[in-house]
Design a binder for these strands. Structure first.
Length: 610
DNA sequence: CCTATACGTACC
DNA sequence: GTACGTATAGGC
C-alpha cells in the first residue's frame, strides 16, 4: 500500500510513502504519521491510500496515534476550504489540529456515523433572541443524539458560551482555543472523536473539531473579522462551518446583531432563512454633528449636558472609542471630513513619502496638496482622541464623579476584571473605554452610551468602513435598553449607516450598502483577493505580478498600492472562480515565492483591507 | 583558486 | 518551511 501524506508546508502536493507490512491495516486517511522527510521524521497526515507499491519510495516510520485524528469527510472539507483560500491542503489540515503534545490517543473508534449530505437547514438569526435560539438548538441537537459545534470569534466569548451551554445542556462542553494547553486540547479532541463528548465550543482554531454526527454548527457573531485567520492559511471559520454542514449534514446557524453583507446577501438569495427576533424597545439615538465644533474638546456641549443629566439620575455612563487601528488619513480642518477617492468613496491614505494620497482599493495616487476645496492648507490630523484624553476631559467636566478607563493598557494583568466588576457593581459611574468596554453591555444601569467619534471607523481606508460602523452602532443600540440613549458624534451625522441605526431600519442600511457594492463590483457581488508583496524591490515585484494577473488570468487588478514602507498591495477582482484563476496563474511561481525583489502572500476574500 | 553569500529548487 | 545545490561575488 501507498499512503498519500500532507505536511504543514506551503506546497500543493501530497507525498507518497510505502506502508510497511508491520503497519498494514493500522494506517488510514486522517491519521497522523511520522514520515521521513529530508532525512528526518516529520509529522504529517494521511489523506489517501492507494493499493499500489513502489520500491523507490521511502516507508512511513510509524503512526503517531492508534486512531485517525480526522474523518475522511473532514479531510475533504479541509481540501475544499484550502482550494477556496488558495492555501495548501496540508497547512489547513495540520494547523487545524492541536499542537503536538506528549501522550497519544486512546484506542478505538465508534462505528462511522452515517453522513448525510447537504445542509439540513441554514439560518441567519439576528435580534435580541438569537442567543436563546443557540441554546435551544444545541439542547435539541444533543437531545437527538447529534453533535454540536459552536464557534465564537474570541476566547472570552467562547468561555462565556461554555458556561451558558453547560447550564442549559447539562453536559460539560469541550473547550478548544489557542490558549488551552495542547494536552488538554487533545484530550477534548479525542473525546469528541470517540463520541465520548458531543458538544464543542471554541474559536476559529476549533473549526475542524471532530464532532460526532453533527446536528448543529453555530457561528456566533458571524460578521466578526476575528473569524478569519490573519495569516496563512487564511481560512474563514464561517466558510469552514458552511463547508462542514454541506458535507456532514446538520443545521447551520449563523448569528449576529448586524450580519455581514455577505451573509445577508446569501440569505436574500435564498441560501439561508433570515430570522429576525425582535425584542421591543430601542434606545433614543442622538447624533452630534462635529462639523464646526471646537476641535480641542472631545465631548460636545449637548453630550456633556446629557451625561450630567444621566449621572444626576443615578445612572451610569459609558463612553466608547472605536479605535480599530486607523490609517493615516488627512482630515480637512474646515469641514472635518477626510479626503476620499472619487471613484471608490473610501478614505484616502496619506503617505509621507512624496506627500501623496493613495486609494487602497483602486490604487489611485494623487498629490496631497489641494486637500480640500474649502480649505487653503493641508493638515495631517490623527483620527479621534485617545482614551486617556477622553478620561481626562470627563474627570475635569464631572468633578466628584467616579471615572475609570478600560482599554488594552489599563486592563493589563489582573486589572481588567477588577474594573469590569467595579463598573457592574456601580462603583464606577462613568467608564471610558475601547471596544472591550462595549462587552459590558447589556447592563441595565447604563443610561447613556456615547460613541465619541463614529468617524474612527467611517474613515477607515476600507470599503467595509460603513458596514463596520453600522455593526458597531447597531450592536450597541440593541444592547441598550429602551430607557437609555445612544449618542453618536460624527462629521457625517447624515451617513446612511448612522441614519439606519437611528431609525432602527437595518434593511435600509443593507439595501443602500449593497447598491454601493454592486455599483463598484465589490463583495458580496464579486470576490476580491489581495496580494501582499514585500521585499527590497516590492514595487517591481508587485508590478510584475499585477501584469501577470491581468494578462494571464484576465483579472481586473488594482494597484500596486504602497502599504507603509516596504509593503505593497495588489487587489484582484473576480467572480466565483477567482481562487482557481489565481491558482492557475500563480501556481507556476510556487516554490519561487522568493522571486527577485521579495516575497508575496495571497489573501482571498479579505475581511479587512489595510 | 578557493571560500562566503544568494537565490532557486525540491522535498516522497 | 528549510536543507541543499548551483551560480556569483569577493578575498587572497
Amino acid at each position: 500500500m501507498i499512503a498519500r501524506v500532507v505536511f504543514d508546508l506551503p506546497v500543493e502536493r501530497a507525498f507518497s510513502y510505502r506502508v510497511p507490512t508491520a503497519l498494514a491495516g493500522r494506517i488510514g486517511p486522517g491519521q497522523r504519521v511520522l514520515a521521513p522527510f529530508r532525512g528526518r521524521p516529520r509529522l504529517g497526515v494521511v489523506v489517501g491510500m492507494e493499493p499500489a507499491d513502489d520500491p523507490a519510495l521511502a516507508s512511513l516510520d510509524r503512526a503517531r496515534d492508534p486512531i485517525a485524528a480526522l474523518s475522511p469527510v473532514l479531510l475533504e472539507v479541509a481540501q475544499a476550504v484550502a482550494r477556496e483560500a488558495c492555501a495548501a491542503w496540508g497547512q489547513v489540515v495540520l494547523r487545524s489540529l492541536p499542537p503536538e503534545a506528549r501522550g497519544g490517543a486512546p484506542d478505538g473508534l465508534p462505528e462511522a456515523s452515517r453522513v448525510s449530505s447537504g445542509i439540513a437547514r441554514a439560518r441567519l438569526v439576528v435580534g435580541r433572541e438569537r442567543e436563546r435560539l443557540i441554546e435551544e438548538g444545541a439542547a435539541e441537537a444533543l437531545g437527538a443524539g447529534r453533535g454540536v459545534l459552536v464557534l465564537a470569534p474570541e476566547i472570552e466569548l467562547a468561555k462565556a458560551w461554555v458556561r451558558r451551554l453547560r447550564v442549559r445542556c447539562g453536559v460539560e462542553p469541550v473547550l478548544l482555543h489557542g490558549a488551552v494547553p495542547p494536552a488538554r486540547r487533545w484530550e477534548g479532541w479525542w473525546a469528541l472523536r470517540q463520541g465520548r463528548a458531543r458538544l464543542a465550543v471554541g474559536t476559529r482554531s476549533a473549526c475542524l473539531a471532530p464532532i460526532p454526527a453533527p446536528g448543529l454548527t453555530v457561528v456566533v457573531d458571524e460578521h466578526d473579522p476575528a473569524h478569519k485567520a490573519p495569516a496563512a492559511p487564511r481560512v474563514h471559520a464561517r466558510e469552514v462551518a458552511r463547508a462542514r454542514a454541506a458535507r456532514e449534514g446538520g443545521d447551520l446557524l449563523l448569528t449576529s446583531a448586524a450580519p455581514s453583507l455577505e451573509s445577508w446577501y446569501r440569505a436574500r438569495a435564498g441560501e439561508a432563512e433570515l430570522e429576525e427576533t425582535k425584542g421591543d424597545g430601542w434606545p433614543t439615538i442622538e447624533r452630534v454633528d462635529l462639523r464646526g465644533a471646537p476641535r480641542d474638546r472631545c465631548l460636545a456641549p449637548p453630550l456633556r449636558a446629557a451625561i450630567a443629566r444621566t449621572l444626576g439620575e443615578g445612572r451610569q455612563v459609558l463612553l466608547l472609542l472605536n479605535r480599530l487601528g486607523f490609517g493615516a488619513a488627512l482630515r480637512c480642518r474646515e469641514c472635518g471630513a477626510v479626503r476620499r477617492c472619487p471613484a471608490c468613496r473610501i478614505a484616502l491614505t496619506y503617505h509621507l513619502e512624496g506627500r501623496r494620497l493613495h486609494c487602497h482599493l483602486c490604487g489611485l495616487s494623487t498629490p496631497a496638496r489641494s486637500l480640500c476645496p474649502r480649505c487653503r492648507g493641508r493638515r495631517l490630523e490623527g483620527l479621534g482622541w485617545g482614551t486617556e484624553r477622553v478620561e481626562a476631559e470627563a474627570r475635569e467636566a464631572f468633578p466628584g464623579v467616579a471615572v475609570a478607563r478600560l482599554d488594552g493598557e489599563s486592563a493589563r494583568g489582573r486589572r481588567g476584571p477588577a474594573i469590569r466588576r467595579a463598573f457592574q457593581a456601580g462603583a464606577i459611574r462613568l467608564l471610558v473605554g475601547t471596544q472591550m468596554a462595549a462587552r459590558l453591555l447589556p447592563h441595565p444601569e447604563v443610561g447613556l452610551c456615547a460613541v465619541v467619534s463614529a468617524d474612527a471607523t467611517l474613515d477607515l481606508p476600507d470599503f467595509r468602513a460603513g458596514e463596520r460602523t453600522f455593526q458597531l452602532l447597531w450592536g450597541l443600540a440593541e444592547a441598550l435598553g429602551p430607557d437609555a440613549s445612544l449618542w453618536i458624534q460624527s462629521h457625517y451625522p447624515e451617513h446612511y449607516a448612522l441614519e439606519a441605526v437611528a431609525r432602527r431600519h437595518a434593511e435600509a442600511f443593507y439595501e443602500t450598502e449593497l447598491a454601493f457594492r454592486e455599483e463598484l463590483d465589490l463583495p458580496p457581488r464579486r470576490r476580491l483577493a489581495r496580494l501582499l508583496v514585500r521585499g527590497p524591490d516590492g514595487a517591481g515585484l508587485a508590478a510584475s505580478l499585477g501584469a501577470r494577473l491581468r494578462t494571464d488570468a484576465g483579472l481586473a487588478v488594482y494597484g500596486p498600492t504602497p502599504l507603509g514602507d516596504r509593503r505593497w498591495q495588489l487587489l484582484a477582482k473576480g467572480g466565483a472562480t477567482l481562487p482557481d484563476a489565481l491558482g492557475a496563474c500563480l501556481e507556476p511561481l510556487r516554490g519561487r515565492h522568493r522571486l527577485v525583489g521579495g516575497r508575496w502572500e495571497l489573501d482571498v476574500d479579505p475581511v479587512e483591507l489595510g
